[in-house]
């Protein structure tokens, strides 16, 4: 909350005003203008935050958030490139030079749980901070939200979704499923409407198509117009064992747990041994989370069956025994 306050003093002054009303020193009608001065900044910020928007974010703050994500080096570099491009374009614009008409529609390919949605959300905030998109919110949809049940329904449904996403980011998860049904499927109609929209709302909408790498490659080959309209392609690689341990550590810190030394070594060993051998779409952050949740439950069982009194340290520490048997 505190970071949304414009200056340190305003909560204090609101409290002062309220106290004065209670003490009978201030009538409500004279209090309201005083509160309004404090509120217009504070509450409209919290109101915006409730709606998932943020105010007064600088591009650097957004990039800072991006850098905090584990791994994803290639993505981070690409996003920095985009940021530099946009900044220079707006400077060129101010200098009276012609502005490049660049579209920023993107394709995210990667296994589930590799950070696609997270990065999409950051993209929205970044473009808002750079004043490319007015709102920067994220609308996440999938095939069922776009494709209708009868002829003519699809275009209408898709347009509704587009309207909702206008000013922000439209994130289509598992976009390849739109082309899955072949020529006669209504998914094709949705693609056509989308492709038209990417051109028409070029300045007001960022479309991101996301999905598994193989399926996305096939999807792009089905419609020749797609490749040229989605010039930015970001690949989300599977996390390495080292990254996954780092993610695990971070997830645990959020929940007030720590890894015992043997558990950390064991986890790294386990993840390294299996690197490249997980079934195709498993090497990801979601798997780590499931692993940890399992371990947390096993830890609880281990602690309840113990006779000695439990310390704070015991309650926080996950040992390797908690992980064993929780894999697969």
């Amino acid at each position: 909350m505190a970071q949304f306050l414009p200056s340190g003093g305003s909560t204090e002054s609101i409290q002062n005003v309220l106290n004065s009303i209670e003490d009978g020193r201030l009538a409500p009608e004279s209090a309201i203008p005083l509160l309004a001065r404090g509120k217009s900044a504070t509450v409209s910020a919290s109101w915006r935050r409730d709606r998932g928007e943020s105010e007064l974010e600088t591009p650097d703050a957004v990039l800072e958030d991006l850098n905090r994500l584990v791994g994803l080096q290639e993505i981070k570099r690409m996003v920095r490139d985009i940021r530099a491009f946009v900044s220079i374009q707006s400077l060129r614009d101010q200098a009276g030079l012609t502005k490049n008409q660049q579209t920023f529609h993107m394709i995210f390919s990667g296994a589930p749980g590799t950070g696609k949605t997270t990065v999409a959300r950051i993209m929205g905030r970044l473009f808002k901070a750079l004043e490319v998109l007015p709102k920067g919110h994220l609308v996440e949809v999938e095939r069922a939200d776009l494709v209708g049940e009868y002829i003519g329904h699809t275009a209408q449904k898709t347009r509704e979704v587009l309207k909702r996403a206008l000013g922000g980011v439209l994130f289509i998860d598992e976009a390849y499923s739109l082309a899955r049904g072949g020529e006669k499927d209504f998914g094709k109609e949705a693609i056509d409407t989308l492709v038209a929209a990417t051109e028409n709302y070029r300045d007001d909408l960022l479309v991101i198509l996301a999905g598994y790498p193989d399926e996305m490659a096939w999807f792009l080959s089905t419609n020749p117009g797609l490749l040229s309209r989605f010039p930015l392609r970001l690949e989300f690689p599977d996390y390495s064992a080292h990254d996954l341990v780092q993610i695990a550590r971070r997830l645990l810190r959020e929940r007030d747990y720590t890894l015992a030394t043997d558990a950390e070594a064991g986890l790294l060993q386990l993840l390294t041994d299996n690197e490249g051998y997980w079934h195709k779409n498993a090497g990801n952050a979601r798997m780590v989370r499931n692993l940890l949740e399992h371990a947390i439950r096993r830890q609880a069982v281990r602690l309840t069956s113990r006779q000695t009194p439990l310390t704070r340290h015991d309650l926080m520490t996950l040992a390797w025994t908690d992980f064993e048997g929780g894999v697969g």
């Binding site: 409500p28 009608e29 309201i32 509160l35 309004a36 509120k39 409209s44 109101w47």
Partner: peptide
């Protein structure tokens, strides 16, 4: 009254 006028004056600055 004065209270209503003050509220209206405040409200026109808000989007909620």
């Amino acid at each position: 009254g004065a209270f209503d006028m003050a509220m209206l004056g405040w409200g026109r600055q808000l989007d909620c």
